[in-house]
Design a protein around this nucleic acid. Structure first.
Lengths: 207, 207
DNA sequence: CCATTTGCGGTTCTGGAAGTAACGTAACAG
DNA sequence: CTGTTACGTTACTTCCAGAACCGCAAATGG
């Protein structure tokens, strides 16, 4: 499944397997060049022509694989996603702290931070892209958060009335707010403070 | 001061007062047309040519007043900002609840929600614009939140260790996260839940 | 081994939007 | 009246996303 997403044969989806096959090296070269450019200049300044130049490939060769610049970028980001070790530290507090700090790291130390602002604009105008981004990047990441919260509830560290989606938004939202709107750096103590906040409300005595 | 921001004579800032003066009706017509278009199609789809057409004005007349499309849009948004009644409801909980619900309203019922995604992208690429937006829209709005929190601390409803910036990000961040990233509608109970969360951590017994 | 089909890949083109330039004319200041 | 600046019109430049077009490479069928 992931193969068809990474380099769909025919943008439309369906396509025969006859005729000259695509050069798989090109897929890699294009994605590599995209990531490289993204980390240098950010989404808006990335042009497909420049990606083509760096990958030593022609522009149509790119458009044959991805229907839009934005789709190319999303898929390039996906290749950068770590499998995401589902570390169970033993406590909900520990898990959430680790996840929050990992997200801070992703947003500030990987190209994702430079990609997001431009991608947000495209997503607002292109529902298909928005769905891709959410399904391929946001949701897979949130799986770990949900798992940590579920475990916390099962262990009795967190109240059974814990609103998981709400907690998730609370931990994650402020990070995006700083990154996209205020531009202020994320406070070093943020992760701890945010977890404390959640525990003060949904933690149980025995937690 | 606000006058010079709304329709600066000469994009550069300085400018003489000799010669034919600008038609002030034009400023209004342009801003009105901009807001109208923004609320219909969102930031990216707004073209300066279309603004000019609707305002019955020429394109150079617009560029004489604002150096970029993005600056025009920011100033148009500023004209839409309500003075912002600093309602003191008597309790920090009440104040924060009202402010949160007012922000939800602004983000979902005014053009701001349609403008933000595109503006976020421009801000990431244009530091001058980013500063304008933060100074003219974000900061003025946050003044009320800070005042409410200060009063809450002064009254003893909130702990003196309350981290004001952190609380502010916590209440506000998830709203932007939903609007810009997940696209999910904001839960009807969000404001109350968020305020409860903050009070569980920073509220004092007597609050 | 050759002919045919399929579609890859490169060169070139189109379309749209931001922003600029040039010019004739209109309106204000001194 | 003179200088200066605004305004409209028209045309232009630049940039980039994306589409046409065409020659040729690669797999298949005989």
């Amino acid at each position: 499944m992931s193969e068809s997403v990474l380099a769909p044969r025919r943008p439309g989806g369906r396509g025969s397997d006859r005729g000259r096959p695509r050069d798989p090296d090109m897929d890699q070269a294009i994605l590599r060049a995209t990531i490289e450019l993204l980390s240098e200049v950010g989404y808006v300044q990335v042009t497909v022509a420049e990606v083509a130049r760096r990958a030593r490939v022609s522009k149509p060769a790119i458009y044959r694989r991805w229907s839009q610049k934005s789709q190319l970028v999303v898929e390039a980001m996906v290749t950068q996603m770590r499998p995401g070790k589902d570390n169970d530290s033993g406590s909900a507090a520990g898990d959430l702290l680790a996840l929050t700090e990992q997200l801070i790291n992703t947003l500030t130390r990987t190209p994702l931070g430079r990609v997001l602002p431009g991608l947000v604009a495209e997503m607002a105008a292109d529902p298909v892209l928005a769905t891709s981004y959410r399904d391929l990047i946001i949701k897979p990441n949130q799986r770990h958060w949900r798992a940590a919260l579920d475990r916390g509830i099962a262990r009795g560290e967190l109240s059974e009335q814990t609103d998981i989606d709400f907690v998730l938004n609370t931990l994650v939202g402020p990070l995006y707010f700083c990154l996209l709107i205020t531009g202020e750096p994320i406070d070093a103590g943020y992760a701890q403070a945010a977890v404390d906040l959640v525990l003060a409300r949904y933690g149980t005595p025995r937690g």
